[in-house]
Design a protein around this nucleic acid. Structure first.
Length: 267
DNA sequence: ATGACGCCTTCCAGGCGA
């Protein structure tokens, strides 16, 4: 006799406004029954966060929001029977960049929801701020207990490799595809963090973001910029990884986020 | 080359996103 293996389903999703996307997120929870969901771009302050809607589905939400822009949260399924607690609110040294990082401890895993600035364009001052944010994120990640289960889930706003872009040739040296952004990605990976989707699907072209404009989704003009990065001890337990494109589609006439959720199942 | 769509906001044109 053996009991079923305990499985943890970990997710990340940039929802592009939680108030505008609440129905989608609730649908997602009911469809996938995830244990942990890192959310980005809440665009809602903590005082207005819709906790009740999540509680009714059996989730507790830990939040780091601000009015109008940015905002990150971690949803935790109560069935985990582990009381999640906030470990870090805001990326140290980058608080002025907005509410872009929240770390919680849950069921023996350090979980961080991360929203990297997009940088706008190479010539814009925000691009240098983006690179600086990635460096501070590296410093912060290095301070995490990487010999234990650690997860960074989020919108990193960069394309790690040619396979992750619908048009690497056209976008060479353009934002999201630059040597500078990729060097900082590599530094994160070199800490021992594993891009779990890519590890389980080494040759599959799969995107997590598609522009709203010009029919990009239907033309398969996307980028893979949302990741679940796991420490090796956690990544070694990963069994499946997927990006659920269904949640990038209209549902009953409602407009989706421009990002799709990324999911990983852990033994 | 630009904008294309959708979010937000002292309300409505303009900033932002990626």
């Amino acid at each position: 006799m053996s009991s079923p293996r305990a499985l943890m389903r970990l997710c990340t999703w940039n929802v592009n406004s939680l108030p505008a996307r609440l129905d989608f997120v609730l649908d997602f929870l009911q469809t996938h029954q995830p244990d942990v969901v890192c959310l980005q771009e809440l665009k809602v302050e903590d005082e207005a966060f819709p906790h009740l809607a999540f509680a009714q589905l059996g989730y507790v939400a830990l939040t780091h929001g601000q009015p109008q822009w940015n905002g990150v949260a971690v949803l935790v399924r109560r069935a985990l029977e582990s009381e999640p607690r906030i470990v870090q609110r805001g990326l140290p040294g980058a608080e002025s960049y907005g509410a872009r990082l929240l770390t919680v401890a849950v069921a023996g895993v350090s979980v961080s929801s991360v929203y990297v600035p997009n940088g706008k364009s190479l010539s814009h001052p925000d691009f240098k701020l983006k690179l600086a944010f990635l460096e501070k994120l590296h410093e912060y990640a290095a301070s995490l207990p990487l010999n234990e289960p650690v997860l960074l889930g989020g919108d990193f706003n960069l394309v790690p490799a040619a396979l992750d872009s619908w048009n690497e040739t056209a976008f060479t040296d353009r934002i999201f595809h630059t040597v500078e952004e990729r060097a900082r990605w590599r530094a994160l990976i070199d800490l021992g963090l594993v891009d779990v989707f890519r590890a389980l699907h080494p040759a599959e072209q799969a995107f997590s973001w598609w522009d709203y404009r010009a029919g990009a989704f239907h033309k398969k003009h996307g980028l893979r910029i949302d990741f679940l990065l796991a420490s090796q001890t956690l990544a070694s337990r990963a069994r499946t990884a997927q990006i659920d494109r269904d949640f990038r589609k209209k549902r009953e006439g409602r407009i989706p986020s421009d990002h799709a959720p990324v999911l990983v199942d852990i033994d």
